[in-house]
Simulated scan of single mutants.
Amino acid sequence: MTLAKLPANMLDAIALLPKNIPVVLLTRHSIREVVNGQGLAGYDLQLTPDGVALAQAWGRHLAMQGVVFASASTSPIQRCVDTSRYMLLGAGKNTLPSLQQVCNPLLVEPGSFVLNIEKASPSFKQYGALGFVNAFLKEQVPGMKSVQVGVFDILTDLYQLTKQSEGMHLVVTHDTIMAVIYAHLSGVGALEKHHWPQMMEGMFLWFEGVEFLKSDLVWIWRGNVYRIAISKVFDKPQL
């Protein structure tokens, strides 16, 4: 399996990564089975053979570019766990000996943004993924955290990962979660279809500063490098 099915700009982003600074690769899982309808993609949907091969090839390519994986955190949903596992398999010896793959409840729903699935689920079924996220960005979905608090929780967790060791910290999650993070960081009030994260599409990010709230977040998305002060992202966090 070549990297032909890897989303555009992911390969180019490697040259933009810093040296000797811990980096997070926050990525959607690899290619999964197709879901019919516009509702929530079932938790039972698995990676396709192409998805398995792509994840392994991507991990191998990153290792060939000198990337050493320091940690791996995933949504507990099997397609995310498998994406991480096959990427690490592809990376081979380019992993720290202490690396253990762990499941993080902040990387799935309910967990990252959904507090009450019974209240939130009807909106997802009504609007579909894109419409649901746009309604959430406008704080129009019941049973949810605020957007700011949800993103704050996830980025705080990612910051703590980077304090563990140098290298790349692999974090595998879902499209809706990545879409909300992207929208909040970029200030996009309503997402369009072209904004939506593709399967195996990721965001490289790192922090510059000795304290989370006093640091700058630098992130690469679709070939562009962005920088923003955490204090501006979370002006008066609702904690």
Rank of each mutant, 00 (worst) to 15 (best):
M1V: 12
L3Y: 06
A8H: 15
N9I: 10
N9V: 15
A15M: 08
K19S: 13
K19R: 14
N20H: 14
I21S: 11
P22Y: 08
H29N: 09
E33L: 12
V34G: 09
N36K: 14
L40Q: 13
L40H: 14
G42V: 10
Y43S: 11
Y43P: 13
D44G: 11
D44L: 15
L45T: 11
L45V: 12
P49Y: 09
P49K: 13
D50R: 13
A53W: 10
A53R: 09
A53M: 13
R60D: 06
A63N: 02
Q65N: 15
V67N: 01
A72M: 05
P76H: 06
C80A: 05
C80K: 00
V81M: 05
S84P: 07
G90Q: 04
G92K: 02
N94I: 04
N94S: 09
Q101Y: 01
V102P: 01
N104A: 14
N104S: 11
P110S: 03
G111H: 01
S112R: 03
V114Q: 07
E118P: 08
G128W: 07
A129Q: 14
L130I: 06
V133F: 04
L137K: 06
G143L: 05
K145A: 05
Q148N: 07
V151W: 05
Y159K: 03
Y159N: 03
Y159M: 05
Q160G: 11
K163A: 12
Q164T: 10
S165W: 01
L170Q: 04
L170H: 04
T173W: 03
D175T: 12
Y182K: 12
H184E: 15
H184Y: 14
L185R: 13
S186E: 13
A190G: 10
L191A: 10
W196N: 15
W196A: 14
M200K: 07
E201V: 06
G202H: 06
L205W: 05
E211A: 13
E211D: 15
K214G: 08
S215H: 01
S215Y: 01
S215L: 00
D216M: 03
W219C: 00
W219D: 01
I220P: 00
I220G: 00
W221R: 03
G223P: 02
G223K: 04
N224Y: 15
R227A: 00
R227G: 01
A229S: 04
S231M: 04
K232T: 14
V233D: 09
V233L: 08
D235P: 02
P237C: 02
